[in-house]
């Protein structure tokens, strides 16, 4: 009982934020946030138009917007964005699945934890650009390479958070499960997984950003598809407007992805809360 009370208490502020009384200051700061974005874009436009930045490759923002429009009309920009997204999602799903499954196993089987911890801690900090060239030898330069690299980057935050989430489950819950003679599988699906879910989702949110960056970096290093390659080739083709068009789209996509994930997370965690209640 005390566990359920504690749980809803930690969710308290979130619930309060969505209450009508908390809406006003939230709204104001949100508007201010967008105003800041607008101010930065105006500064960009001015710096390019007034020649404040001494550069041949600093187009005004409006020029970049035109390049976004043109790129969408011809379908070229849309095409590379979609191919990047597809690659990223594949890697994200594979990496998340591995992270969650492996994390649950490691957290519940102490022997496995001791066995794998050295490998995990050794591989985890490796920077992706450093491991792409050797991986080319085994995986080629196509999607196989990029999806693997993304999955690898995604796995660790999810894995670590899954382990952490399971470790922090209140012992009382597990003891209760034991008292009711729940099987291992039932305990896993009805207690461990739901209780660890908020932490797992937080790990997945970190991984989503990583997946995004990793996909683009991998595309820049090897292969001929996606936004990463597009950014490189337009830069070397002296088309800074098209390059920044891709960058702007990435910023928008990154924002959108995070927003979408937060909405899903809220729904899932909300469901979790109702379960507890």
């Amino acid at each position: 009982m005390s566990e359920a009370a504690q749980h809803s208490a930690t969710l308290g502020p979130a619930a309060a934020a969505s209450a009508s009384r908390g809406m006003r200051p939230a709204m104001i700061s949100k508007v201010a946030g967008w105003l800041l974005v607008l101010a930065l874009l105006v500064a960009w436009e001015a710096s390019a138009r007034l020649g404040l930045v001494k550069s041949q490759s600093w187009p005004p923002f409006t020029g970049v917007l035109r390049a976004v429009w043109d790129g969408m009309l011809t379908g070229e920009l849309l095409g590379v964005l979609l191919s990047t997204m597809l690659r990223m999602l594949k890697g994200f799903l594979i990496g998340s699945a591995i992270g969650v499954v492996l994390g649950l196993l490691i957290a519940t089987v102490p022997l496995l934890r001791r066995f794998l911890s050295i490998v995990i801690e050794a591989v985890r900090p490796l920077p992706i650009p450093a491991i792409v060239p050797p991986l080319i030898l085994f995986l080629g330069i196509d999607d196989g390479l990029k999806v693997t690299v993304v999955a690898l980057a995604v796995t660790f935050p999810v894995l670590i958070n899954t382990i952490g989430g399971v470790d922090n489950i209140d012992g009382t819950l597990l003891q209760t499960a034991r008292t009711f003679r729940k099987t291992r599988l039932e305990t896993m699906t009805s207690i461990i997984l739901p209780s660890a879910l908020p932490t797992i989702l937080a790990g997945m949110r970190i991984s989503l950003g990583l997946a995004f960056v990793t996909t683009i970096v991998a595309e820049m290093i090897a292969g001929s598809a996606g936004v990463g390659y597009f950014i490189m080739v337009t830069q070397y083709g002296m088309r800074p407007d098209q390059m920044y068009a891709a960058v702007i789209c990435l910023a928008a996509l990154g924002y959108g992805l995070n927003w979408a994930f937060v909405s899903i997370e809220r729904r899932l965690v909300g469901w979790d809360q109702r379960q507890d209640d």
Binding site: P133, L137, G140, I141, D142, A222, G223, S224, Y229, V233
Partner: peptide, 20 residues
Amino acid sequence: DTTPTVGGAAGIPALVAGQL
């Protein structure tokens, strides 16, 4: 079937690996 790479870093390793 061309696969362009800016900088060409991937070329020789992928060639040696038989990918190209």
